[in-house]
Write a protein that binds this DNA or RNA. Structure first.
Lengths: 194, 194
DNA sequence: AATAGATACGGAGGCACCCTCCGTTTATCA
DNA sequence: TGATAAACGGAGGGTGCCTCCGTATCTATT
């Protein structure tokens, strides 16, 4: 009887699998940027030069693919939150980070302003972004609340939801509007000096 | 030679056609509320007991169907804007109407909070709602700006977009949060007494 | 009441997409 | 150089979209 696989003797992952995985993510990223979150998975596989089965093996669900495609950027976003939080006063850190967030969704959804398409809702994107963004917002708002700079009685994430709602605006100016919305919101939650 | 149709002698519209149209809209309304904006049109036709061809004849596009289904409510919303605008001071009218708007999207998108589904974006809904909502917001904000109560440097509609962004929040509390967001936004755009 | 048209109906058909399943191929390791 | 675990690929079954056109039904007319 042959021992199936000695404990600890882990095989090196196959090179072709790794190649395909990377290639799929590249193609998917382009496809999402161009056609939105509901780009055809079959076409992504086709363009990547792999079978549809391979795509599904690597990414069992659409959300898994989206999540992996944007994991890097999301992590950088979270890092930026920590960085800004350390360098700036609470309220300003919050403001700056929300501006960074606008750039972030701009890359994810190049689709909205582009073809004023009716692409998939943002829930997917948030889900995929995972709790990273949520906890970033919590950290930033917590500091500002404790510092007495702002008052907040809704989930911190809802501030971002409001801002990203503007992404459904067509036209080239939505980013500007979104940035102004950040200022409006900050002004709306700040504790006024008296 | 028989005259095809004497000018002005318009035939009465066929009764079966009218019946089907109404039935389709009833079923569609329920379907959209339950499954979101991308509910299956074939299933809607099936449930309504008509062929898919009939659905498409009455409503050539999905947006046409959505638009017709919600036309009534949208018109009432526009009326409410006028009414509130006449009865309340500008800023308060704006605030109240945004609250009404939250109820409006709640009926349209019973889906979001319900099954935290990944339903279609809001662009469709705005498009379907037509310019009615846009002009309501313009009227309300114009009054408040001219009265010196608020300052606004983004498209008025973007205020609503922000609020409806919260509808992508799951859970039963999104309406509360959205209402608080209205206050935040109002506070953010109001001109402060000095 | 019967009939001629105009109107409206229905669903088959062609296409795209989703996702699963499993026979075949290939990379790794010995 | 094999043996075999790992990965591949694409056929297949299901659903949905939308169009097209032969058939059925309603209205107006005699």
């Amino acid at each position: 009887m042959t021992i199936k696989s000695e404990r600890g003797a882990v095989r090196k992952p196959r090179a072709d699998a790794e190649r395909n995985r990377i290639r799929l993510m590249e193609v998917a990223k382009a496809a999402f940027a161009e056609k939105g979150a509901d780009a055809s998975l079959e076409e992504i596989a086709r363009v990547a030069g792999v079978g549809i089965g391979t795509l599904y093996r690597h990414f069992p669900t659409r959300d898994a693919l989206i999540g992996d495609v944007y994991r890097n950027e999301t992590e950088q976003l979270a890092k930026a939150a920590i960085d800004l939080g350390q360098r700036l006063p609470p309220k300003e850190a919050l403001r700056q980070w929300m501006l960074v967030f606008i750039e972030y969704i701009a890359t994810k959804q190049g689709m909205y302003p582009a073809l004023n398409s009716l692409v998939g809702g943002t829930s997917t994107l948030y889900a995929a972004s995972g709790p990273l963004i949520g906890s970033s917002m919590e950290m930033l708002t917590k500091r500002a609340v404790e510092g007495g700079e702002i008052r907040l009685d809704i989930p911190p994430l809802d501030l971002l939801r409001a801002v990203s709602g503007l992404a459904s605006n067509n036209g080239p100016d939505w980013k500007d509007a979104a940035k102004r919305m950040v200022d409006i919101i900050i002004a709306g939650i700040e504790v006024r000096p008296r």
